[in-house]
Write a protein that binds this DNA or RNA. Structure first.
Lengths: 330, 330
DNA sequence: CAACATCTTCGAAGCGCTTCAACACGGAGA
DNA sequence: TCTCCGTGTTGAAGCGCTTCGAAGATGTTG
């Protein structure tokens, strides 16, 4: 193993000089800097992370608690994580993937000085991990927006505004009875923050527009057609749909197309999902893109800024926007 | 921050005694052990990971390079990662998520002593990262099976055997012309190890059985129906299908059902995907489960064993098996 | 020319832990 | 009684790095 002492010897300088060249915390003459840098690269030196964290009291690692369970929209999770990992690396941080999504994992990582900060995904409306985070001294950012007073910084897509926007669009298209085909029942029951907020925005917008709106959990599988059938049978007047379930979306869209053709009437579907998922599904009246990767990037930036300035950030909600219709279904 | 010295003082013993209590590397009287353990828990002590890794020359962290791109079967990736993370934790390791999937990331993590070992997913048939891993001194395990001589330990599902098994089943059902509807074109082009091996097994089995087989890349979206239409139009004699593309599966199954109904003939579909994905799709003749989580677990176990015994493991291929038909399609 | 600022560089003191060599102690064997 | 040995415990030496205070060299000013 190559150590800083080897580099110092090779460059004919002291250990501290090498350290200062690397960190840039003191001015070093150009000549010395060159010598040290060439020694570093010829020896292939890279500092021991543990030693560094011991001496500097910081690890350059961010702990990430991501939901590795099923039922969530896997693409969205993947894209958020991608955003986090790449952005973190850009800012000089690595990501430690925390196993279980409980408070103990957070505690372990923080108390063991394995991480400088924590990023927590898949937050529920009333999440017990928030208290843990407050107790810890580590900077942390949530991806999601829990209910109540915000004691921890948050980043998320503005699902509530997305609900309003979708209703606006559907009402604008002339629909008077709307349905939200949403997340799977288990996600709804857990009161996952985004599902709650979307439903709230959707229902409030319906009320404000004077139209009828209803919310329906929907499994993330081809079984989604059962939900569509039930909704269509229950209230044949429903003609406007907001679909927030990427796995169910193609099936829902296809089935609604069939039913519409049978009845000779026109349904409109607004999808809420990542852009690439929506583009692959024909027959959408419009879609609202969930900027998944941008969420990850924003959360990471916020956390890094927090780490750099020690100024606790607040809440950041990324605004929704309409993306336009996709190709007709056949 | 609570340090080992605080614990030692509280328990009235020396620092080394506390260390030995924690590691169990020397015998300690029951009485002393009790005193130390209660001091640890009342003070809420947990050792500084960096200090530990500096002194012990091991980090208890495994570096994981996972494909965070699209085009791969997201569910499979997620399940493998879940298996890895939970199993690693069970064996006392944490997971550092490596950003880009190039050699440099591996190098950085290993040389910087951030990890004890490396786990690499999404291996291509002729992957440049293998040379890097050989050069590094760190134990490593691939998830996938590159072509050629194995210089690095590997764990994977036996996709080649799965190809044979699927053909056996389809031929057993009486089909004489078979098609493999596979991964997206970009995955095939990259020569991702599993796609190559599945196609090889499938084609070899067809030849051995004296039936006609062809391989068709297929996008992971509803556009998959276009591939199905093209295949059906090109060679109307094809009646047996092996589908290895979880996102396309429902669409392929539905479209084949329609075409079969039109023509009045019976197609058989064997799906190759995680069990829960298959169960959600009606009308499958059979399915071969990709034991994604088990792959993750096996790879982690192999790596931990390697770390513990320093005996380089070989290649482990998990065998395929048929899971049975799903419900009829309507 | 002395006094003082500025720019570079260095020595040494830790950071919190593991582990080795050694020590104290009591009981067993000679 | 003395030596030997096993058990339980300790002191101290690092592990590789950061960072503080200070020293040497050089230039600037009165």
């Amino acid at each position: 193993m190559v150590t800083i002492a080897d580099v110092a010897q090779a460059a004919g300088v002291s250990i501290s000089t090498v350290s200062y060249v690397m960190s840039g915390k003191r001015s070093i003459s150009q000549e010395t800097r060159d010598r040290v840098e060439s020694a570093i690269s010829t020896l292939g030196f890279s500092p021991h992370a543990g030693a560094r964290s011991l001496a500097s009291r910081s690890t350059n690692v961010i702990g990430l608690q991501a939901p590795l369970r099923t039922g969530v929209d896997v693409h969205v999770i993947m894209q958020i994580v991608t955003g986090i990992v790449t952005q973190a690396r850009k800012r000089g941080y690595d990501i430690l993937l925390l196993a279980s999504d409980d408070s103990k994992a957070l505690d372990r990582a923080a108390r063991g000085s394995m991480v400088d900060a924590l990023l927590v995904m898949d937050v529920e409306s009333d999440d017990p991990r928030i208290d843990t985070l407050v107790g810890l001294r580590h900077p942390s950012v949530l991806i999601g927006l829990p209910a109540g007073r915000q004691t921890i910084a948050c980043v998320d897509f503005d699902f509530e505004a997305a609900g309003w926007l979708a209703v606006d669009r559907l009402v604008g298209l002339g629909h008077r009875r709307l349905a939200l085909i949403g997340s799977p029942p288990e996600v709804m029951k857990r009161h996952t923050s985004y599902a709650d907020r979307l439903a709230r925005g959707f229902l409030a917008a319906c009320e404000s527009a004077g139209v009828v709106g209803s919310v329906h959990p929907c499994p993330s599988s081809p079984k989604a057609v059962g939900v569509v059938d039930a909704v269509a049978a229950d209230d044949p007047g429903i003609t406007g749909f907001l679909v927030h379930n990427e796995a169910a979306l193609p099936h829902v869209a296809a089935r609604l197309g069939d039913i519409g053709a049978d009845r000779g009437e026109e349904f409109s579907i607004v999808a809420l999902c990542p852009e690439d998922v929506a583009r692959a599904v024909p027959g959408l009246a419009d879609s609202i893109a969930v900027p998944a990767e941008a969420i990850g990037i924003a959360a990471t930036d916020m956390l890094c800024e927090y780490l750099a300035t020690d100024a606790r950030p607040g809440v950041l909600l990324l605004p929704p926007s309409l993306a336009g219709a996709t190709a007709p279904s056949r």
